[in-house]
Design a protein around this nucleic acid. Structure first.
Lengths: 217, 217
DNA sequence: CACTTAACCGGACTGCGGTCCAGTTCTGTT
DNA sequence: AACAGAACTGGACCGCAGTCCGGTTAAGTG
């Protein structure tokens, strides 16, 4: 909780081979050694596989290590901790979403007016998170890290950009956080599952929110 | 993750002696046996003590059990799991806050106009959570339960009430959730600590939010 | 191509959260 | 007061996250 944080080289997101991380700006990756890179991809593949067949909640770190024919220590060295592995797994999916709203077609992509992009952002995220619910929940088990994750940072920046283009009044950064909070996996899941709300209702709520918080004074 | 949930009598909030839980409506408490009630209070006392001296993060369930001269199983039977114990610990503090905005003096209490109460709610919660930061973070480690906790439910209901009194347009429940999300312990902590924002800025953000989301159409 | 060194590897080890169940203690009933 | 059964108790037990460190291997240097 307030530890000195031993070593943990802080290298949780080094890309490997075909994996392209240019989207989520990784502050700098120290370049993995060849064997280490190989192991990393194998670990991710195996983890995804196990998650698919028995549910991510029933995949222990040790199981991943064993299935990838690697020592447990290796897994932890690479990903730091369980949440780190989840985050890495998630990263792949996240990139699809990011591509959609950074370079995709309207109304999400850059060829639509800002107001429309902002509107479209909500449902896109809601649906995306719903599709990968388990993983998001598991990954954000450590909530503190969540706010620091590149993915979250990117979303935040995107929203702030759109809001600025719209000349939205007020504290843009805080408003962006508020909007993102509305899209939180756990909140959406709670409202849909526990409270029995419909996706349409959540989307309508988003449109309303965007209208009131994004409109120029 | 999708288990049948063995027993867990779902009795996590039975009051004991002087502890008054009428505020956070506890759906029904099966009345603890005399010895069990005694143990419960001792456990909470001991836990609070240990938390105070070595930080809540460094207090294991076993340590609490031992210090209270009780078996480990007893602790888990009483509180379900670690988060349950945290929640119970938190409950006491939470009641102070609840009393403040349910029955306290203006501008928080019922003798002030709704708009003022709504405005005052934000800073009150922000400051309260900041004061008990560690505990909130530990307790909400299990985020799914968080949305179901009586405390959260009460806050939500309170906000919804005020919004309704203000004749705020839109989907009241969703707006209440959005507002509450802005006050999330973890978000606030992130903004204050990591992003170096000032408390004043967060409060100003709240006032702005309330004005735009609470104003009648 | 030999050599140095930094990085990596694996698996034994620790501590904790959570479960289980045989034995004990309370509470309501007659 | 005696009894039956429900509720509680405690500690042995399990599996997993995360640490540690002696041995190994890859990447720069001449």
């Amino acid at each position: 909780m307030t530890e000195p944080l031993p070593l943990l080289p802080a290298q949780a997101e080094p890309p490997s081979g075909q994996v392209d991380l240019t989207l989520t700006q990784t502050e700098e990756q120290p370049r993995l050694r060849a064997d280490a890179a190989r192991n990393r991809t194998r670990l991710l593949e195996v983890a995804a596989e196990l998650a698919a067949e028995r549910g991510i909640g029933n995949v222990s770190m040790e199981a991943v290590a064993t299935a990838a024919k690697v020592g447990k220590g290796t897994v932890f060295r690479r990903f730091g901790d369980r949440a780190g592995l989840m985050l890495a797994l998630l990263d792949h999916h996240e990139q699809q979403l990011q591509a959609a709203f950074l370079m995709g077609p309207p109304p999400l992509g850059p060829d639509a007016p800002a107001a429309e992009r902002l509107r479209a952002f909500g449902p896109a995220v809601l649906r995306h998170e719903r599709a990968h619910r388990d993983l998001y929940v598991a990954a954000h088990a450590d909530l503190a890290r969540h706010y620091l994750s590149p993915a979250n940072h990117l979303r935040l920046g995107h929203l702030a950009l759109l809001l600025r283009q719209l000349k939205a009044p007020g504290d843009i950064e805080l408003i962006a956080h508020t909007l993102l909070g509305y899209l939180s996996t756990l909140l959406a899941d709670h409202l849909l599952t526990e409270r029995g709300m419909s996706m349409e209702r959540l989307e309508a709520g988003w449109y309303d929110l965007v209208e009131r918080l994004g409109a120029a004074a």
